[in-house]
Design a protein around this nucleic acid. Structure first.
Ligand SMILES: NC(=O)c1ccc[n+]([C@@H]2O[C@H](COP(=O)([O-])OP(=O)(O)OC[C@H]3O[C@@H](n4cnc5c(N)ncnc54)[C@H](O)[C@@H]3O)[C@@H](O)[C@H]2O)c1
Ligand SMILES: NC(=O)c1ccc[n+]([C@@H]2O[C@H](COP(=O)([O-])OP(=O)(O)OC[C@H]3O[C@@H](n4cnc5c(N)ncnc54)[C@H](O)[C@@H]3O)[C@@H](O)[C@H]2O)c1
Lengths: 284, 284
DNA sequence: TCGACTTTGTGCGCGCCTTCACAAGCGCCT
DNA sequence: AGGCGCTTGTGAAGGCGCGCACAAAGTCGA
C-alpha cells in the first residue's frame, strides 16, 4: 500500500521546512499545448482548479493506459461500462472519477476516446515528458533504467547515479552512470523534479537527502526503509517483500479456511461473486 | 495503488469458480511452533480467528521489519510512540493495529520486541518460508530473482520460468530458468502458492492463467495489465509507470501552486506538519 | 416532431479507516 | 504500602471512498 503525500506520520515540527520556491516549474504545465481539437467554452482553462480525490488520481494512470490502447485500435467512443471493465473497476466508480475531471461524456453515447486521453494526460501533467533520475544502479536500478515502457507513458530517464566507483562510468541503457557528486548539478540543469531510489536500505535516507537538496520534490523508493523528507516532498514507496508478505498472509488465511471447511453445511461452493468482505478471516 | 483481494470489480457471475480444494495447505501454518516463552492462558491458541482489517495487514510487514531491526540492536522494549515513529505512522494507528492482533503491550512500559516479532511473524504466516515462482526473466525478473533481501523476510524463490527458448536454460541467481511446460509440475511438487509475474503485459493474462491452473492462488504482477482471475485468487499489482505518473501529477500541482503563490498573505511558510489534507489541489 | 431508449452524472447511505482523547492498568519510587 | 506518572487499549467521531439507483440529458428511429 504505497502511500502518498507525506503519509509518514512523523511527529509535528520534525520536518525541516522546505526551502520555499524550491519547487521548480519545469516548463509551464498549466497552460498546456492546445488540446487536440477541443475548442470548448472559456470556462475550460481552469480544470486543474478543482480538487481531485487521491483515490481517483491513483486510477487515472490505469484509465489512461486503457484509453491509449483503445486509441491505437481506432475505437472512437467507449461507454463507462466498457471502459470500466477494461480498467478493472466498477462503472459507477469510473464515472465518478471522470466526473471529477469535469468530464466530457455524452449521455446516451459514452466518452469520446481521443479527447478523454488528452484530458487525462493534461490532468496528470503528461503534456510534457517528465525526466527522472535513478539513484543506485544495482540489480533493480539497471532493470528500471533499461525498461522501455516508461517513455510511452510520459516518463523519461534523464540520468543515472551511483556511489560505487566500480559502477560509475558503466553504460546502462545508453546512459553513462555518473557519480553522486554530479547529481545536484544535473538535477538543476535538467530541471528534474522526480527521483527514483534504488539503493540499499541503509543508504536510502542519505541518497534521498541528496535528491531533495538538489531540488527533487517527488521520490519513488524501492528501499525498505522509512524516509524522512521535508514538507512538500512526496514519497511513494514500493516494497516488494512486503507485497509478497501480504500475499503470504492471505494464503495462510485461505489454508486455514480450507482446513476449517470440514463442515460443508449448505452448498458451500457456489459463492456470490461480490467483492467478498474486506475484513480478513473471522472464522466464517 | 496496488489493490488487494479481488479488487478487479468485474461484473458478478463472470469469475470462473475456483476448483474447490485447490488451496493447498503447505505445512500447517495454524498450529505454529510454540510461542517463544509465552505460557499465556488457554484462550490464546486461536488468535488467527479474529478478522484483521486489510489496512492493518498492509502495515504489518513494515512493523515487522522495524521490529526485526530493533531485535538485532538488542532493544528489549519499545513504546508505541517510538515504534510508530520508526515505522512512519501515527502512534494511535499503530496501537490499534497491534490491538487487532490481540497484542501484548504492557501499560506504562510498551511492547516487548521479541514476542511481538514472533507474534506478527506468526500472523503473517512467516513461520514457514514461502517459496514463490517467478515467471518472465527479462530485466525485471532477473533483478527479482537476484535480490537477496527476500530470504530474510520469509520469502524464497523456488523456481524460474520463461517462454523464450533463448532464456530457458540460462542460470540466474543460481537457478536454471525452466520452460513454461514444467511450471505446473514444479508448482505442484513444491507446493508453491505464490507466483510473481514479470512478463510483458501482452503475455500476462496467459501466464497468469497458467499459474492459476497450476494451483497458485496469490499473484504479484508487474505487468501493466488488468488480470482476470477466478474467485479465491489474490492479485496484487505493482505498476511502476503509474507510480511515476502519480508523482508527476503532484509535481504538476505543486508547480501550479507555486505559480499561484504570488499573493503571500500571512506568513505562508510555517505550515503545520499535520498530514495535509487529502483532497489534492483546490486552489488554496 | 415526438417518443423511446441509452448512458451519463450524482445524491445518498453505508462501512472502513483514521484520529482524538481518555480511562484503565502497570511499574516504580518514596 | 500507597500514590504517581507513564503507556496501552479503545470508545466515539469524523472523513473518505464506494456502490446503488435514478433523474437528467442526449441519441436514434419512426
Ligand atoms: N529485485 C530487486 O532487486 C529488489 C527487490 C525488492 C527490493 N529491492 C530494494 O531495492 C533496492 C535496490 O536493490 P538492488 O537489488 O538493486 O541492490 P544492489 O545492491 O544490487 O544495488 C544497489 C546499488 O546502489 C548503489 N549505492 C549504494 N549506496 C549508495 C549511495 N549512498 N548513493 C548512491 N548509490 C548507492 C550501489 O553501488 C549499488 O549499485 C534495495 O533497497 C533493495 O532492498 C530490490
Ligand atoms: N524496470 C522494468 O523492467 C519494468 C518497469 C515497469 C514495468 N515493468 C513491467 O514488468 C514486466 C517485465 O518487464 P521486463 O523489463 O523484465 O520485460 P522483458 O521484455 O525484459 O522480459 C519479459 C520476459 O518475459 C518472457 N515472456 C514473454 N512471454 C512470456 C510468456 N507467455 N510466458 C513466460 N514468459 C514470457 C520473455 O521471454 C522475457 O524474458 C513488463 O510487463 C513490464 O511492463 C518492468
Amino acid at each position: 500500500m504505497s502511500t502518498s503525500r507525506h503519509d509518514t506520520g512523523r511527529p509535528p515540527g520534525h520536518a525541516p521546512e522546505r526551502a520555499s520556491g524550491s519547487a521548480r516549474p519545469v516548463g509551464d504545465p498549466l497552460v498546456a499545448t492546445g488540446p487536440a481539437g477541443d475548442p470548448g467554452p472559456a470556462a475550460e482553462r481552469l480544470i486543474s482548479e478543482r480538487g481531485i480525490p487521491e483515490a481517483t488520481v491513483g486510477r487515472l494512470p490505469v484509465y489512461l493506459r486503457v484509453l491509449t490502447a483503445l486509441v491505437e485500435r481506432g475505437v472512437p467512443t467507449v461507454s463507462s461500462e466498457e471502459l470500466a471493465a477494461a480498467a478493472g473497476v466498477g462503472s459507477a466508480k469510473l464515472r465518478k472519477d471522470l466526473s471529477h475531471l469535469g468530464s466530457y461524456g455524452v449521455r446516451g453515447v459514452g466518452y469520446e476516446v481521443s479527447p478523454l486521453v488528452a484530458h487525462i494526460s493534461r490532468e496528470l501533467g503528461l503534456t510534457q515528458a517528465w525526466r527522472v533520475v535513478i539513484v543506485g544502479l544495482g540489480n533493480l536500478g539497471r532493470a528500471l533504467a533499461s525498461y522501455g515502457g516508461f517513455a510511452e507513458r510520459g516518463m523519461g530517464v534523464a540520468a543515472l547515479f551511483d556511489a560505487d566507483p566500480a559502477v560509475v562510468g558503466r553504460e546502462v541503457a545508453g546512459l553513462v552512470v555518473r557519480p553522486m557528486s554530479e547529481l545536484a548539478a544535473v538535477v538543476r540543469a535538467e530541471g528534474v523534479v522526480i527521483g527514483v531510489l534504488a539503493t540499499p536500505a541503509a543508504a536510502a535516507q542519505g541518497a534521498c537527502d541528496e535528491l531533495v537538496a538538489a531540488g527533487v520534490t517527488g521520490v519513488l523508493t524501492f528501499a525498505p526503509a522509512v524516509l524522512s523528507v521535508p514538507e512538500g516532498v512526496d514519497v511513494r514507496k514500493v516494497d516488494l517483500a512486503s507485497e509478497l508478505q501480504i500475499l503470504a498472509f492471505h494464503e495462510q488465511r485461505k489454508a486455514a479456511d480450507a482446513v476449517r471447511a470440514a463442515a460443508p453445511s449448505g452448498g458451500g461452493a457456489r459463492a456470490v461473486a461480490r467483492p467478498a468482505r474486506r475484513r480478513v478471516g473471522a472464522a466464517r
